[in-house]
C-alpha cells in the first residue's frame, strides 16, 4: 500500500527572508507594539493630568532606564510604522516597485526608523 505521509518543509528559520520581507514583518511587529502601547499611553496621560503630584511622578518615571528603553522601543515602532507605511503607499502608486528600488527603500526604512527614533528621544525626556 502506498504511504500517504507527505511532510512539508516550512522551517521559517531556514528560509532566508529578503530585506523587503524583513521590513514587512517589522511593520507588523511595530503595529502590534503601537496597539499594545495605547493603554500605557492613556495611563501616562491621565497621571500627568491628575495634578502637580502626578506630573512629578510621571517625570520621575521618565528618569528610569527601563522606561527610557521602552520609550525608545515605542518611538521606533511609531517611526518604523510611519516610514514603512509611506513606502507601501509609494509602491501602491507604482513608484519604486522595481528592483533595486524596493530593496533600497526597505534598507532606508529599516535603518532610518531607529535613527529618527534616537534623534527624537531627547525631546521626550
Amino acid at each position: 500500500m502506498r504511504s500517504q505521509v507527505r511532510p512539508v518543509f516550512l522551517e521559517l528559520t531556514r528560509i532566508r527572508l529578503p530585506v523587503a520581507g524583513i521590513l514587512s514583518i517589522a511593520h507588523r511587529v511595530s503595529g502590534i507594539l503601537l496597539f499594545l502601547s495605547i493603554p500605557l499611553q492613556a495611563a501616562l496621560l491621565s497621571l500627568v493630568l491628575s495634578g502637580e503630584e502626578g506630573y512629578r511622578q510621571a517625570h520621575a518615571l521618565f528618569q528610569m532606564l527601563p522606561v527610557r528603553l521602552a520609550l525608545f522601543l515605542f518611538l521606533w515602532a511609531l517611526m518604523h510604522h510611519l516610514l514603512a507605511g509611506i513606502r507601501f503607499l509609494f509602491i501602491d502608486l507604482d513608484l519604486g516597485v522595481r528592483a533595486p528600488r524596493y530593496r533600497q527603500s526597505a534598507w532606508v526604512v529599516l535603518l532610518g526608523a531607529p535613527l529618527v527614533a534616537l534623534a527624537l528621544l531627547p525631546g521626550l525626556l
Binding site: 527572508l17 529578503p18 523587503a20 520581507g21 514587512s24 507601501f88 501602491d92 528592483a99
Partner: peptide
C-alpha cells in the same frame, strides 16, 4: 497580498 515582495526576489 501584503506587498512583502518575496516573489520579486
Amino acid at each position: 497580498c501584503h506587498t512583502v515582495m518575496n516573489c520579486v526576489d
